[in-house]
């Protein structure tokens, strides 16, 4: 599977990428939503985007809205991975088209469980 990891923290991107590699997946990375949309425009859709909420330039929730406005990205799943943990935030993300939601901090097992839940547990 091909994942796009979107987070403004290089440390968190590295952590997520390491977990993806251990699970046998491929990845690209972006530091904000705008950069992620540019990468998608140049490389085509990914199987899933894993996106933080609070980022400069374009936030995660703005990315979800922008991605869901593009019919060609309808098949790309989106999981928010964020420190935002209020019920209203989760509901907002799901209503705008996020497929799943993982709250930081999270464990390797929780991450793998979420991917399996989304049918994204098959290695590349």
């Amino acid at each position: 599977m091909r994942f796009l990891v979107i987070d403004d923290s290089r440390a968190i991107r590295s952590l997520i990428i390491r977990m993806l590699k251990e699970l046998g997946h491929q990845h690209a990375e972006a530091g904000n939503g705008r950069e992620a949309l540019d990468i998608i425009a140049n490389n085509g859709p990914f199987d899933a985007a894993l996106v933080d909420w609070n980022m400069p330039v374009m936030t995660g929730i703005q990315f979800v809205e922008a991605a869901r406005a593009k019919p060609e990205l309808a098949g790309m799943q989106i999981m928010m991975i964020t420190t935002e943990t209020e019920v209203e935030r989760i509901q907002q993300a799901l209503a705008l088209g996020a497929t799943e939601y993982l709250m930081k901090p999270f464990t390797r097992e929780a991450f793998a469980d979420k991917l399996a839940m989304m049918g994204l547990d098959k290695a590349a």
Partner: peptide
Amino acid sequence: SQLEVNRGLPAQMLV
């Protein structure tokens, strides 16, 4: 805890 609801619980079910 948050760590516990992160494990295996779909976000739709959580909310």
